[in-house]
Simulated scan of single mutants.
Amino acid sequence: MLYDVPVNLGDRSYTIHIGAGILDSIGACCADAGLKGKCLIITDENVGGHYAETVFQSLEKSGFAPSVVTLPPGEQTKCGDQVFALYSECIKAGLDRKSFIVALGGGVMGDLAGFVAASFLRGIPFVQVPTSLLAMVDSSVGGKTGINIPEGKNLVGAFYQPELVMADLDTLKTLPPREYAAGLAEIVKYGIIYDAPFFQTLEEHVEKLPDVGNAELLAKMVGRSCEVKAEVVAQDEREGGLRAILNFGHTVGHAIEKVAGYGEYVHGEAVAIGSVYAARASVELSGLPQADADRIEKLFIDLNLPVRAPGLEWAKLRAALAVDKKTIGGMPKFVLASEIGTVTFGNEVPEELMERIWNEMG
C-alpha cells in the first residue's frame, strides 16, 4: 500500500511516501531522489533499536555509505548542545556538501536533525523518516526545523525542506499509546482548520481511530492530513500568511508545554488543550457556534486526550506567551474559527478574555 503526496514548492518540491512496510525501500527512494554518497542517520535510543538497522541496510544496499548516531529521547534533546555535538558527528562521518542526513524518529529527531542539515556546511540535503503519528502528519512535512532554548520552544530554527519524506505506518506499532493519541490531536486540527467533512469522518470513526492495526483507515487519515498541510505550505512556505492557520491550538499549547515542563504534556496533548481554548475564544470573538466548540471538545475527549491543564496559573502562561514566535508587540496572535473547516489567523484576544477563558476551563 502506497499513498504518495506531492509537496509543490518549485525546485524545492518533494514527495511524501506513505505506506505499510516501506521502510526497507528507503535506499531506493533516496537514489531515485538523486542523493549520493555518505549519509548520517540521526535517531534516538527508543527508535534506533527498532529501525536503525533496517534503514542502514537499505541505504547500504543502494550504494550509500551510512553512519548512525543515537541520541537520548525526549524534548530535552532538542537543544543547542546537541546541535554542536551533531556537527562533530557529521565531520566524523565524513559528510561533505553532497552528503545527506536521515532523520529517523519522531518530531524531536526531525526538528533537530533538520536544523543540523540546514546549518552544517551552510546546508546539506536531508530526508525525513518519521516514526510517530505526530511527526508523520505535522513536523516532518513543510520544512520547519528548530530547537528549544530556555526562553521557549522552537525559538531557533530555519525553514529547510527535506528531499523526501518516508512514512512507514508499520513503525506506529511500536509507538506508545499516549504518543499515538497525541498524533491524533494534530489530525483533528486539520479538520478544524481546513476540512469540515474530514472532521465529520473522524467523528464517525472515532472508535476505530486508536486502532493502529487498521492500516487502510490510518493511511487515509495520514494521507489527508499531509495533503492539507502540503496545500497550505505550497501557498505559503515561510508562514507569511496562510500557513499560520496550522498554528490552531498551538499558541496556548506551546505555553502549556513550557510552563508545565517539557514532557509533562506531550505536544499533541498540549495542542488538544490549546484547541479547546481556541474554540472557546472563537465562540466569543469569531462567531463559532457553541455546538461546534462542543463537538471539538468531545472529539478530543473521545480520543482520550486532555482538554484541561489543572494547576497551571494563567500569569505564568501569559509570561510564556510573551516570548512565543506568534506574539507581536507583546500581544499573542491566535487562529480562530468561524465554523469547523474555516479559520482566520492573526487574531488578538483581549487580555481580560484570555484570562477568563483559561480560568473557566479550570
Rank of each mutant, 00 (worst) to 15 (best):
G80A: 15
D81K: 15
Q82N: 15
V83N: 07
V83W: 01
F84E: 10
L86Q: 03
E89T: 09
C90W: 01
C90T: 08
C90A: 12
R97H: 11
R97P: 13
K98Y: 13
S99T: 12
S99W: 10
F100A: 09
I101V: 15
V102C: 14
V102L: 14
V102N: 03
A103K: 05
A103H: 03
L104D: 05
L104C: 05
G105H: 06
M109W: 01
M109R: 00
L112Q: 01
A113P: 09
G114I: 04
G114H: 00
F115V: 05
V116C: 01
F120N: 02
F120H: 07
R122Y: 10
G123D: 03
G123E: 05
G123N: 03
F126I: 04
V127R: 06
P130C: 08
P130I: 07
T131K: 11
T131S: 14
L133E: 07
L134D: 00
A135K: 00
S139A: 15
S140L: 09
S140I: 03
G142I: 13
G143P: 01
K144Q: 07
K144M: 09
G146M: 01
G146Y: 04
N148R: 08
N148L: 03
N148A: 05
I149S: 08
E151H: 12
K153G: 04
K153F: 07
N154F: 07
L155S: 09
V156T: 11
V156P: 02
V156E: 05
A158V: 12
Y160V: 11
Y160L: 10
Q161E: 14
Q161F: 09
P162W: 04
E163D: 12
M166N: 13
D168Y: 12
D168R: 08
D168P: 09
D168G: 12
L169F: 00
T174L: 11
T174G: 10
L175D: 06
P177R: 14
Y180L: 00
A181V: 07
G183F: 05
G183C: 10
L184V: 12
A185F: 12
A185Y: 11
E186C: 10
V188D: 01
